[in-house]
Computed example of a mutant assay.
Amino acid sequence: MSMIFLAWLCISAVCDARYRKCFNYLSVSGLGLAFITAFLFPEASPVRISVEGAFLGCFLAFSVLLVFYFFGMMAAGDVKFAVALGAWLGWELLLLVWALSCGFAVAHGFIVRSHLKYFFSPAIDWDDGTQKNKRRFIPYVTYLSMATVIVLMLNK
């Protein structure tokens, strides 16, 4: 199941980085696989959490990130992905993943908004993530996925 979890993280990260969107089928499939794993194969889970831990991780992710969604600071796909991620990781590791992914998102914002992006790679035509109505979107699902991999590597 760890390889399926890693594949789900990679596919979600690439879709969010490329299209600036986390598709519903990714979030729903991740949530379903997390609960199937927690119910039927708890020893095969990447972090071996209980069903109660999975529910608590979902509830924590939903309740906290829904506030950011209502204020327009986060997209609905990010919230849905975080709920699925909470089911996989539980609330303890989810807090570490949030902290690290917020650091990645802040660094992304600083680099894209400043002229530092041309220092890192002057030959690349940087896409600043401008979407409809000239709003900029940070690929937060990508940063959640990267932070998850880092936290799981350091947790072992």
Rank of each mutant, 00 (worst) to 15 (best):
A82L: 08
L60K: 04
M74E: 10
F68Y: 12
P46W: 08
W126M: 01
V67K: 07
A107W: 08
L40R: 04
P139E: 09
I4L: 15
I124K: 15
N133Y: 11
S121K: 12
N155S: 13
A82W: 09
F39Y: 13
G86I: 02
S63Q: 02
K132I: 01
N133K: 15
F70M: 13
F35G: 02
K134V: 00
A34N: 04
L89T: 07
R20H: 09
N133V: 01
A82N: 08
F35I: 07
L65C: 11
T37H: 02
G77R: 06
S121M: 10
C15V: 11
I36A: 14
D125G: 00
G86Y: 09
A61I: 02
P139G: 07
F23W: 14
I111S: 09
V151I: 15
G90K: 11
A13C: 03
R20G: 00
L66M: 14
K80H: 12
F71V: 14
V79S: 06
A84T: 05
C102A: 14
S145D: 04
F35K: 02
V97D: 02
L144M: 13
N24T: 06
A44M: 12
A147G: 06
K156N: 08
A87Q: 07
T37F: 00
N133E: 13
G103W: 06
L56K: 14
N24L: 10
S27P: 08
M74D: 09
R136H: 13
L85H: 03
A123R: 14
K80I: 03
K80C: 09
A75S: 15
L152G: 03
A44N: 13
E43R: 12
P139L: 09
F62A: 14
G109K: 06
F68W: 12
G109C: 12
L6G: 00
F71T: 12
R113A: 05
V97T: 09
M3D: 10
L89D: 03
S50Y: 03
S114H: 05
L116M: 12
G86C: 06
A123H: 11
V112L: 15
N155F: 10
C58Q: 01
V106F: 13
F59I: 08
V14N: 03
L85C: 02
V141Q: 11
L154S: 12
W126E: 03
M1P: 04
P122Q: 07
A147C: 06
G90N: 05
F55L: 15
V106P: 04
V47Q: 04
R113M: 06
I49F: 03
R20I: 00
A87E: 04
P122M: 07
